[in-house]
Design a protein around this nucleic acid. Sequence first.
DNA 1: GCCAACGTTGGC
DNA 2: GCCAACGTTGGC
Length: 137
Amino acid sequence: MAHWLFKSEPSVWSFAMQVKAGDKGTEWSGVRNHAAKLNMMAMQLGEEGFFYHSNDGRAIVGIVTVTKLFHPDPSDETGKFGMVDIAAVKALPKPVTLETIKAMKRLAKMELVANSRLSVQKVTDDEWAIVKDLGGL
DNA sequence: GCCAACGTTGGC
DNA sequence: GCCAACGTTGGC
């Protein structure tokens, strides 16, 4: 199973809102980037990803799971892009900050550091295990 | 609030 | 099809 990372500004859509939205999941709409789209197309049902708060927070705060495979995003008039649905799984007992990630040698290659602007990223098995551990899971 | 990095757009 | 200009993102 592959692992992922979803990035969101908490003032727009926070992990707390994702939790409140329940188990069924919500549409991860509005992605207009091809690299992010390819990542979403590769996602399988039940695969898990980190939920990262950009700007305000700058930390990985929770885990989400894919509840619906890649499908068209009605908000995209060009029809080129799409989205998956995700639902919150659990919060990290200890959020893992960007600062911590940058300070860890084994996490230095994370896309979060290398390509911070990509909104849906791939996370390696190694990175997944390390961050979960740092997060207290 | 600034600025670097990156993606997209549009003129040629 | 190239590339300069522009807009957006996100860390600091």
